[in-house]
């Protein structure tokens, strides 16, 4: 655990000294300012539009951040040979993966927390009623962010960064689809499509922005189960990533 922890700290140092993170931070500030300036339009009142748009923006921001943070880490470590002395002596490959993952996951969840706090501040400043399940919605977005990061890590061990981004986005889109919509993509092969859908994650489980925006109560049991599901899928993706990394020759 000590090796993983200190490598995560090393990863944090490295990420915060890179321009990518600060570029995303500036974009985030601009997005929050944009959401704050959205008028209520008198459509549905109660800041519903702001909550809905804000949570959706955080979700998209989380996807972009995961790709920006993690898609280049391993390819860069290999290309610049940073990985070799680290893997030769202090760390095992598993520790390397988990250290890098923990460091980036801290940045990812930190950003989601800041975005969420920004959204809450906007709702408060505008005088809209605070949705009761806002914390639950943000928690699930945080879990989704960690899951997306694990997906990006998995792809990064066997693809290049330019291929990683479209693969992750494709998975993100397909994983939002219902079984019926997914099988509808190839109506002639429903059995095959059902198998594929079963293997793909159900990322729609993490999205409760509609009931939250409408002020509807979401059961804590649901939030807990969805969070557990997300963490289990994250563990599965990290196991896959580890399996790929263990089998690789580091030339």
């Amino acid at each position: 655990m000590r090796g993983i922890y200190y490598f995560a700290v090393m990863t944090l140092y490295s990420l915060f000294r890179r321009r990518t993170v600060w570029g995303v931070a500036i974009l985030t500030a601009l997005a929050l300012a944009g959401i704050a300036s959205i008028p209520a339009y008198g459509l549905s009142g109660g800041g519903r539009f702001t909550v809905d748009t804000g949570l959706t923006s955080i979700e998209i921001g989380s996807l972009v951040l995961a790709i920006a943070l993690a898609s280049g880490i391993f390819p860069r470590d290999r290309e610049t040979r940073i990985a070799f002395p680290i893997l030769a002596a202090p760390l095992s490959r598993t520790q390397y993966l988990l250290g890098r993952y923990m460091g980036t996951a801290l940045v990812q969840t930190g950003f989601i927390a800041v975005w969420g706090a920004g959204l809450v501040a906007i709702i408060a400043l505008k005088g809209y009623p605070m949705p009761s399940d806002m914390a639950g919605a943000l928690l699930l977005l945080g879990v989704e962010g960690c899951f997306l990061l694990a997906v990006v890590f998995f792809f990064s061990f066997w693809t290049s960064p330019p291929l990683n981004a479209p693969l992750t986005i494709l998975l993100f889109i397909l994983s939002q689809m219902s079984v019926r919509d997914f099988t509808g993509l190839m109506p002639g092969a429903e059995g095959l499509m059902r198998i594929l859908r079963l293997l793909l994650p159900h990322m729609d489980s993490f999205h409760i922005k509609d009931p939250v925006a409408h002020g509807f109560d979401v059961s804590p049991v649901y939030i807990l189960l969805a969070a557990l599901y997300g963490l289990a899928y994250t563990a599965f993706m990290l196991s896959l990533a580890r399996s790929v990394l263990l089998s690789r020759d580091l030339r």
Partner: peptide
């Protein structure tokens, strides 16, 4: 063991 690689390159932000 200690290892000195050819063309060593640790994370240069450190």
């Amino acid at each position: 063991l200690g290892y000195v690689p050819e063309n060593p390159d640790y994370d240069d932000s450190l």
